[in-house]
């Protein structure tokens, strides 16, 4: 048993009362879907889940903070994007409710990550907070063209999904953090699916290259998001060799992950200098 495992098991056996409460309220909430009571319970959950976490003694604290700060950059970028989009009035009337809900999720993710980083003794230094969605003038403003706004939304959400996926192994030694990251990850996937559908695309990824229709620069800039989507081998097993399902559907059925480096390559042009 390595030292990290040891800490893990320590944490579990000594679950604080608060932690148990959190677990129970969530389980309870699952049973009362749709009730207002549930919404109120959940509203106070994320922060509690973290502050109730035992003071972390994991070996890889520094790496974990790096992962959280990386995630925070993306969440801030997304939140800022949707807030600006809503402020600019670029969003078609009937879709406003959807984007408000997405904006609210991103805001919740930002707060959750900021609180967690602070609670773990880290700081927010160096995490970008100002963004330029023309990427320094490389693209026209997405806040004046709804089609472009949607395309960039899709790019950000699909990137978010793949970024969290790529970081999951780095959070493996802390059950609470890993689970919350997975809970954010699948919410980003739900966002991505809805936004893709607004663009008359399938909810699942069909691309294996950048997004078309907004010029060569935009396509090239979004290419790294989708470049590895034609992979059909997972855990060393090529799915095409064990199923009769057609290749397109097999590709759709697994979302690929992106490395931190690739995600930063995609996101950095949007960070204001």
């Amino acid at each position: 048993m390595n030292i990290i495992k040891l800490f893990d098991s320590f944490n579990i056996e000594h679950k604080s009362e608060e932690e148990v409460d959190v677990y129970m309220s969530r389980k309870e909430a699952f049973r009362k879907i749709g009730s207002l009571a549930k919404k109120m319970t959940l509203a106070s959950l994320p922060l509690a889940a973290f502050t109730a976490m035992p003071k972390m003694a994991f070996a890889s604290g520094h790496e974990v903070l790096d992962v959280l700060k990386f995630a925070l950059t993306l969440e801030r970028l997304e939140y800022d994007y949707y807030q600006k989009g809503l402020d600019a009035g670029v969003i078609m009337g009937e879709d406003t409710g959807l984007f408000m809900a997405i904006r609210d999720h991103e805001m919740a993710h930002v707060k959750l990550l900021e609180e967690t980083i602070n609670a773990l003794g880290g700081n927010l230094d160096g995490v970008a907070s100002q963004f330029d969605f023309t990427a320094g003038g490389a693209f026209p403003s997405p806040f004046e063209n709804y089609h472009l706004f949607l395309a960039l939304s899709q790019a950000f959400e699909d990137t978010g999904v793949k970024a969290y996926k790529g970081q999951a192994p780095n959070l493996k030694d802390n059950d609470t953090l890993l689970t919350v990251a997975l809970q954010i990850h699948s919410v980003e996937a739900r966002h991505a699916a809805r936004i893709r559908r607004l663009r008359n695309r399938k909810g699942w990824i069909t691309e294996a290259e950048g997004i078309e229709g907004f010029g060569g620069t935009f396509k090239m800039a979004t290419n790294p998001i989708y470049a590895n989507e034609n992979n059909t081998t997972h855990a060393g097993l090529d799915v095409l060799t064990v199923t009769d399902v057609e290749q397109d559907a097999v590709q759709e059925a697994w979302d690929e992950f992106l490395s931190k480096e690739t995600v930063l390559e995609i996101a950095t042009p949007f960070v204001a200098q």
Binding site: K39, L45, L112, L182, S186
Partner: peptide, 8 residues
């Protein structure tokens, strides 16, 4: 909607 976290 209120916490931005999916089910686990």
């Amino acid at each position: 909607i209120s916490d931005g976290l999916d089910w686990a």
